[in-house]
């Protein structure tokens, strides 16, 4: 018995290897697996890699999906990773467009001189809590004190008697940096803050937790969390497209597509599409604020 099995098995092993190689070869035959992207004559075609900030990801993805519907010859791949990954990818020319939720840093412009950011949307950062949280509004000072770890109970800021769980972005993220700049100033964030690697992660951690507070881009607001109005000069301002657009909401920033040495070809077309009327409508639909308006 055994000898038969053994003799069967060396070819078997070989078959596995060959099979592996064949599947590896699937890269070569990939285009036959799905209809090859064939655009209308003269239409923009080819591949475009868009990578970077998770804040920009939803809107870029939505733009890409619509753009590919319009131009079947285009193949746009959107991936996350973070603002820095996006900027480095463009700098190292491994992607055509980088997404960033912050401006370029000195270290980055020093390393890659040709980088050019284009603002494609504005974003407000909403402070979110559990839907059951009754706190009416917060001032920026209160938010700062909470994230500094000086205020640890909701009753101290007008809510129920419940311990506050501060949730924020990881220290390298563009959102965190912006939040630090706009809200925290030079106050350092408490070390007990739970850190999440994306807007979505913050949102899904705040949603089930009655004591939680977090901050996310407007695009991540939905019924599972409650956005707390921020009090500016005595009036509470809801985070919304209108309040960000007219400058009343205090925590807002620009989101960028970054290219190296000026966009050309498909990248240029895609950025133009993002800034077009239809593109900016998509921006608004995804919960961001148009820049071209």
């Amino acid at each position: 018995m055994q000898s038969h099995r053994s003799t069967l098995f060396l070819p078997g092993l070989a078959a596995v290897v060959i099979g592996a190689l064949l599947v590896a070869g699937c890269t070569g035959t990939g285009e036959t697996a799905t209809p090859a992207p064939t655009g209308p004559p003269g239409g923009p075609a080819g591949r475009l890699s868009v990578t970077g900030s998770t804040t920009v990801l939803p809107v870029a993805q939505a733009l890409a999906e619509r753009y590919m519907d319009l131009n079947s010859g285009a193949d746009i791949q959107v991936s996350g990773g973070g603002s820095s990954v996006g900027i480095a990818a463009v700098g190292e020319k491994t992607a055509e467009i980088g997404m960033a939720s912050r401006g370029l840093k000195d270290a980055e412009t020093a390393k890659y001189a040709a980088l050019e950011p284009v603002a494609i949307a504005r974003d407000g950062i909403a402070v979110i809590v559990h839907p059951s949280n009754a706190v009416a509004h917060l001032t920026l000072d209160q938010v700062r004190e909470i994230y500094a770890g000086n205020v640890t109970n909701w009753k101290d800021v007008g809510g129920q008697d419940r311990q506050i769980v501060a949730i924020g972005r990881d220290s390298a993220s563009g959102t965190r940096e912006f939040f630090t700049e706009k809200v925290m100033g030079t106050t350092s964030t408490t070390a007990t803050m739970l850190e999440k690697n994306s807007n979505g992660a913050i949102q899904s951690s705040v949603a089930p937790n009655p004591g939680a507070i977090g901050y996310v881009g407007l695009g991540y607001l939905d019924a599972t969390v409650r956005a707390v109005p921020l009090q500016v000069d005595g009036t509470a301002v809801e985070p919304s497209i209108e309040t960000v657009a007219d400058g009343r909401y205090p925590v807002a920033r620009e989101l960028y597509f970054v290219t190296s040495g000026g966009a050309t070809g498909l990248a240029q077309e895609f950025i133009a599409f993002a800034l077009s009327g239809e593109g900016q409508q998509i921006v608004e639909k995804e919960g961001f604020i148009p820049v071209a308006a």
């Binding site: 890269t27 070569g28 285009e31 799905t34 890699s49 999906e65 193949d75 791949q77 991936s79």
Partner: peptide, 12 residues
């Protein structure tokens, strides 16, 4: 890894 892709990859 990328998050989203409409067509399959065509090269390594």
């Amino acid at each position: 890894a990328v998050f989203s892709q409409r067509h399959l990859p065509s090269s390594l």
